[in-house]
Simulated scan of single mutants.
Amino acid sequence: MEIKHGTNKFYFGEDAQNPDGELTYLPDDKNKLVIDSVVVKEELRGEGYGDVLLDAAADYARENDKRLIGRCPFVAKRFEEFPEKYKDVVFVEA
């Protein structure tokens, strides 16, 4: 599966306007991305595609010296469940 990077989102599927799954974010400032939603089509849920999208966002953050803020419940939960996997990209407020 190819994960694509569109305007303020990572997604998979042929149509960027109606993807099979997407993670959307809002740029907070020069180095933070606020992840506000992860949505996967119902028939694909439970297959790990949300994690694949989150991993793509984390890789992008690593490559571009960005930090992630998880406002979406799915992402916030993943950050808590796998702190070692994401500790280098999660923004920690002082």
Rank of each mutant, 00 (worst) to 15 (best):
M1N: 05
E2V: 07
I3G: 12
K4M: 11
H5K: 02
G6T: 04
G6D: 11
T7Q: 14
N8C: 14
K9Y: 07
F10Y: 09
F10G: 08
F10K: 03
F10T: 07
G13A: 14
G13E: 13
G13T: 05
D15R: 10
D15V: 00
D15I: 00
D15Q: 11
A16S: 14
Q17F: 02
Q17I: 00
N18P: 00
N18D: 14
P19E: 07
D20I: 01
D20A: 10
G21Q: 10
E22K: 12
L23V: 06
L23N: 06
T24P: 02
T24H: 03
T24R: 11
T24L: 14
Y25I: 01
L26K: 09
L26D: 12
D28P: 00
D28K: 14
K30T: 10
N31Y: 15
K32I: 01
K32V: 01
L33M: 04
V34N: 13
V34M: 10
V34F: 13
I35N: 08
I35T: 09
D36R: 02
D36S: 06
S37A: 15
S37F: 03
V38E: 05
V39Q: 12
V40T: 05
V40S: 05
V40D: 12
V40W: 03
K41F: 00
K41D: 09
E42L: 07
E42D: 14
L44D: 07
L44K: 03
L44Y: 12
L44R: 04
L44E: 12
R45D: 11
R45H: 05
G46I: 06
E47T: 06
G48A: 09
G48H: 08
Y49K: 09
G50H: 07
D51L: 11
V52S: 00
L54N: 07
A57K: 09
A58Q: 13
A58S: 15
D59Y: 10
D59A: 13
Y60G: 05
Y60C: 02
A61W: 02
R62Y: 07
E63C: 01
N64P: 04
D65V: 03
K66L: 15
K66Q: 15
R67Y: 15
L68M: 10
L68S: 11
L68P: 02
I69N: 13
I69M: 10
R71V: 05
R71Q: 13
C72W: 05
P73D: 07
A76W: 01
A76D: 11
R78F: 03
R78M: 12
R78N: 04
F79S: 07
E80I: 12
F82I: 09
P83I: 12
E84A: 14
K85P: 00
K85R: 14
K85G: 04
K87Y: 01
K87S: 13
K87G: 00
K87C: 08
D88C: 09
D88F: 04
V89R: 04
V89K: 06
V90C: 10
V90K: 10
F91D: 12
F91A: 12
F91G: 04
A94N: 06
A94F: 10
A94C: 03
